[in-house]
Nucleic acid binder design. Structure first.
Length: 268
DNA sequence: CTGGGGAGGGGGCCC
DNA sequence: CGGGCCCCCTCCCCA
């Protein structure tokens, strides 16, 4: 009988993103994620939509070179109004500067024009700075490309779970989270399912009675390292969690919380 | 009521 | 990129 807090609750459909709206921006999860395990608890999804994952709108592609943003246009949350227009930055990584088209064959006149433009570019060089990593770029498109490929993708939670409203910065993290819904690791003894193999391993110890983590201070042993760690706190005079008001210490956060809720810290 | 044990979840890091 | 592991946390139960 699983304890109530461990039972995966039904997901509130009203909280789920409208995936149908996101058909054009989907993240395909490899089918193996759902096929390689014996007991998927949740029907296998054909696709994992990404609620918040909206691959960055390539609005820079249509924007004129160095053109300012249209009034009020804020295509990306990661592009604040400051938009990287900064005072001349110190010399920095110039390898990422965007100087497209320099390799195409051009006439002398074009070359002169190009040269003038290059001078202009040099003046403007590195005026576009990423507000996330401070890299600077000579062109706005260069900055936009950088943010699209690197910073935005990492700074924004871009991959959202189809089963709940959680979002993750990486596909790997999302895949791992999804296992908490699919629970692919099943105990052969009692049939209980877990999200990760090592969770199952720990559970199996409850069947075998194996307790590989022993306390150096007493003869107690534990099946779980976390529980040993908590136990070690009981040997310490000064516990890890301390009440800010009465300075009493507790071995566990939950005990401190209980203490606080019981009134020690109320209305001080 | 408090403290501690048991069991498990989830994110991050490393290989 | 995925698995293993670590750490921290939470909750239930019981003495």
């Amino acid at each position: 009988m699983p304890r109530s807090f461990l039972v995966k609750k039904h997901f509130n459909a009203s909280k789920k993103p409208n995936y149908s709206e996101l058909d054009t921006h989907t993240v395909i999860i490899s089918p193996y994620l759902y096929e390689s395990y014996p007991l998927p608890v949740i029907p296998q999804p054909e696709i994992l939509s990404s609620g918040a994952y909206s691959p960055i709108t390539v609005w820079t592609a249509t924007a004129p070179f160095h053109s300012p943003l249209p009034n009020g246009l804020s295509p990306l949350s990661g592009y604040p109004s400051s938009l990287g227009r900064v005072s001349p930055p110190p010399p920095s990584d110039t390898s990422s500067k965007d100087h497209s088209g320099s390799e195409s064959p051009i006439s002398d006149e074009e070359e002169r024009l190009q040269s003038k433009l290059s001078d202009a570019h040099a003046i403007e060089a590195e005026k576009f700075q990423c507000n996330l990593c401070n890299k600077t770029y000579s062109t706005f498109s260069g900055l936009a490309k950088h943010k699209q490929l690197h910073c935005d993708a990492q700074s924004r939670k871009s991959f959202s779970c189809k089963y709940c409203d959680k979002e993750y910065v990486s596909l790997g993290a999302l895949k791992m989270h999804i296992r908490t819904h699919t629970l692919p690791c099943v105990c052969k003894i009692c049939g209980k399912a877990f999200s990760r193999p090592w969770l199952l391993q720990g559970h199996i110890r409850t069947h075998t009675g194996e307790k590989p983590f022993s306390c150096p201070h007493c003869n107690r042993a534990f099946a779980d390292r976390s529980n040993l760690r908590a136990h070690l706190q009981t040997h310490s005079d000064v516990k890890k969690y301390q009440c800010k008001n009465c300075s009493k210490t507790f071995s566990r956060m939950s005990l401190l919380h209980k203490h606080e809720e019981s009134g020690c810290c109320v209305a001080h």
